[in-house]
C-alpha cells in the first residue's frame, strides 16, 4: 500500500502498546503505592453508614483474598497484566454476579456514538470556521461574525453542559433533562429509537461541539495564515482555479495536516471531558457508569471503565496515525 511503510506501522504499533501499558500500569500501581487501603476504607464507610459492621477484620481479609490483594505486588501485577490482555475485568463489586465487561459492553456504544458524532462535527465545523477566518475572500460580514463562535472555546465541556441543561432543558424545555432515549421506547434498530437517541444526544453533543470547535478554529486559522503565504497558493491563483478549489484543495487540504495530528493529541482530553458531560446529562455511557462506580465504591467497575477507555482512545489514535500517510503523501519518506 502506498504511504504505509513497514517501519512506520511498526513504530505506531509500538506506541499503541506502550500507551496502553503505561496507562494501565499507572492505574494499577499508584493506588497501591499511596498510603491507604481501599478495602479498609470501604468497610470504614460501611461502618459509618450502617453504624456497626460485624467481623470487620474478617470481612477485610476475605475481600482482600477475593481480589488477590494478599499476594505480593509482583504477582498481583502479572495477574493484572494477564487479565488486561484477555479483557477479563472481573466482577462488579456492587452488582455481584454481573461481569464488568457486560456492564461496559452496554455503555461503550453510547459513549463511542456520542463522542464520534460530537468530535467529527466539531472538527469539521471548527476547521471550516478557522479556515474562513484566515481566508482572504471570506465576505466581510461573515468574517466579522466568525469570532463569535470562539466565545466558549476555553469553557470546559461539563460547565457548558450545565448551562445548556439549565437553558434548554430546564428553562425552555426543548430537550430532555437526561438519559439516552425516551422512556417508552424499545431499544433496537427502529426509527423511533434512533430518533429518540439522537434527540437525547443533542445537548450533550452540543456541549462538546461548542466548547471544542474554537480550539480547532484557532489552530486552523494559524495554519491557513501560514499556508496562504506559500508559493503554491500564488500559483493556484495565477492558474485562476475557482476560489472554492483553491480554498479546499490547496488551502484547507494542506492546513488540515497538523490538525489531524492535533486531533490525535487532543483525543485523551476529549474523552476525559466527555465522561463528565455524560455524568451531567445522566447519559447512559461510560462516564455515567464510572460515576456510579465512584458513588458505590465499585473499584472493579472504575478500573475496568478506565482501562477500556484508555484502550479505546489509544485505538482511535492508532487509526488516525495509520490513516495519516494517506492524507499526507510525504510522511512515508520522512520520519515524524
Amino acid at each position: 500500500m502506498r504511504g504505509l511503510t513497514k517501519e512506520y506501522v511498526i513504530r505506531r504499533l509500538f506506541m499503541y502498546v506502550l500507551t496502553i501499558w503505561l496507562g494501565s500500569t499507572l492505574i494499577f500501581l499508584i493506588p497501591r503505592l499511596v498510603p491507604g487501603d481501599p478495602i479498609a476504607a470501604m468497610v470504614t464507610r460501611m461502618q459509618q453508614q450502617a453504624g456497626y459492621v460485624e467481623n470487620s477484620a474478617e470481612i477485610i481479609a476475605a475481600w482482600r483474598a477475593r481480589f488477590g490483594l494478599d499476594a505480593p505486588l509482583s504477582i498481583q501485577y502479572l495477574r493484572f497484566l494477564r487479565n488486561s490482555v484477555t479483557l477479563d475485568l472481573g466482577y462488579s463489586l456492587t452488582q455481584f454476579p454481573t461481569k464488568v465487561t457486560e456492564q461496559i459492553s452496554k455503555s461503550l456504544p453510547w459513549t463511542i456514538g456520542l463522542l464520534a458524532l460530537a468530535t467529527v462535527i466539531s472538527f469539521i465545523l471548527g476547521n471550516t470556521i478557522g479556515a474562513l477566518m484566515a481566508w482572504r475572500r471570506t465576505p466581510r460580514a461573515v468574517k466579522s461574525l466568525l469570532p463569535l463562535s470562539l466565545t466558549f472555546t476555553s469553557v470546559p465541556f461539563f460547565m457548558l453542559g450545565i448551562l445548556l441543561l439549565y437553558v434548554f432543558a430546564f428553562g425552555l424545555k426543548w430537550f430532555p433533562v437526561g438519559g439516552g432515549y425516551g422512556r417508552g421506547v424499545t431499544m433496537g434498530l427502529n426509527l423511533e429509537f434512533i430518533g429518540s437517541a439522537l434527540y437525547h444526544a443533542v445537548l450533550p453533543a452540543l456541549a462538546i461541539i461548542i466548547s471544542s470547535m474554537g480550539f480547532w478554529a484557532l489552530g486552523m486559522r494559524g495554519m491557513m495564515i501560514t499556508t496562504a503565504g506559500e508559493d503554491y497558493m500564488v500559483l493556484a491563483d495565477a492558474k485562476a482555479l475557482t476560489p472554492a478549489r483553491i480554498f479546499w484543495g490547496y488551502g484547507v487540504r494542506n492546513s488540515i495536516l497538523p490538525q489531524v495530528t492535533a486531533l490525535a493529541l487532543a483525543l485523551g482530553g476529549i474523552v476525559g471531558g466527555a465522561v463528565l458531560v455524560e455524568y451531567i446529562f445522566s447519559y447512559p455511557g461510560m462516564g455515567y457508569l464510572l460515576y456510579q462506580g465512584i458513588v458505590n465504591n465499585d473499584y472493579t467497575i472504575i478500573q475496568g471503565v478506565v482501562f477500556i477507555l484508555i484502550l479505546t482512545t489509544a485505538t482511535a489514535v492508532l487509526i488516525l496515525d495509520l490513516l495519516y500517510p494517506f492524507v499526507d503523501p510525504r510522511i512515508s519518506y520522512q520520519r515524524r
Binding site: D231, Y232, L235, A238, K239, A240, R253, N254, L257, R330
Partner: peptide, 30 residues
C-alpha cells in the same frame, strides 16, 4: 483571462507545487 491569456512560471519552483497533489492533477486542474 488568467492562465489562458497570460501564464506564470513562478519564482520558487521548489515550493510552487501543492505538496499533497500528484503532478498530473495539478496540471490537470488548470
Amino acid at each position: 483571462f488568467r492562465w489562458r491569456q497570460a501564464a506564470l512560471i513562478p519564482q520558487g519552483a521548489m515550493n510552487s507545487l501543492n505538496p499533497v497533489m500528484k503532478v498530473r492533477d495539478q496540471i490537470g486542474d488548470g
